[in-house]
Design a protein around this nucleic acid. Sequence first.
DNA 1: TATGAAAAGGGGTTGCT
DNA 2: AGCAACCCCTTTTCATA
Lengths: 153, 153
Amino acid sequence: MKESGNPHRKLLQSIQADGSLSLADLSEKAGMSQSSTWRKIQELESDGVIRKRVTLLDPGKLDLKLCVIAHVTLEDHHEETVASFASVVSERPEIMECYALSGAFDYMLKIRARDVESYEAFMTHYLLRNRRVRTVVSSFVLRELKFSTELPI
Amino acid sequence: MKESGNPHRKLLQSIQADGSLSLADLSEKAGMSQSSTWRKIQELESDGVIRKRVTLLDPGKLDLKLCVIAHVTLEDHHEETVASFASVVSERPEIMECYALSGAFDYMLKIRARDVESYEAFMTHYLLRNRRVRTVVSSFVLRELKFSTELPI
DNA sequence: TATGAAAAGGGGTTGCT
DNA sequence: AGCAACCCCTTTTCATA
C-alpha cells in the first residue's frame, strides 16, 4: 500500500517470471538503479510480499504421472473435525494444494501420485478411512493446460 | 533415469524447498562435493527435470484477495472448440492453473482476481461470452489451507 | 571417464558520498 | 540514489584415481 509505480510492478513481474535473474538484469528491466533494485527486493522480502524462492520440477520426469482433483465434504464443521482434516492436509506431501470452498463441496484438493495404485492407497489410508470425511469425489487430470505461479499484477 | 541414490533425492528436495540456497548449502545437505552438486544441477536443467526457478509472491499483499475454482464444460470437443478455449487459457494471466478432467466437467480452472467485481467482469468477458462454453460453475475460495510447489519425492 | 580440489571470475552486499 | 570496494559464490580448470 503505497506508490505502486511502474518500475516496482516491473520488478515484481520479473522476479515472479524468473527467479534466476541477476540484479543487473532486474534493474535494467525495471528501469531503476542496481542499488534501488536491491533495496526494494529486501523491502519486499521483509514485508512478506516475497514469500519464497523455489525451483519448479517436472512431475512427469520424476515418475509422478498422476494428478487428481478431489472434492471433499466433511460430516460436520466442528472445530476438531476441521482441525483433524487440516492436519492431514498439512502433513501429507501428496496433497499439493487445498482450498476451502463455497458451494457444494467443503474442500478442493490437488493431489500428485506415482500412479493409480498409489493414489488409491493414499486415498484409502488418509481420506476414506477418516470418519470425519463424508464424501470424496476424485477427478483425474487428463492434461495440464496451464500451471503458473505468476500472479496477474 | 538411472542411479536414483539418496543424495540426488536430497538435492532435488532441497532445491524444491528453497531456490536461494547456495551450492555450498546444497552440497552439504545432499552429502556430496560441490563439484558433483554443480554438475548434477546442470544435468537436471538440461534434462528438463528442473523446469524453472521462480519467486512466489503473496496474493493478499498485492490486492488479489479473490481466488476462484471454476469448472467448465464445452459445447463439444471439436478441435477448433478446444483450441479456442485453450488459447483463452494461455492468454489470460488471471487463469493461473487449468486442467482437463475426467468426470462431470471438462476443465478445472484456478483464477485470481482483485475482487468479486473484477472476477465477474473477467468471467463475463472471457468465459460466458464464448459460445463454445456451455457451463461455468464458480466456487469461491474461502481459505487457502495449502499451496505447495514441492513434489512428493 | 568420473570425481574432488582449488583457482579465477562475476555478482551480490555493504558503506560512504 | 549512485558509486565503489569487498567478499562470497558460481564457474572453470586442473589433477587424481
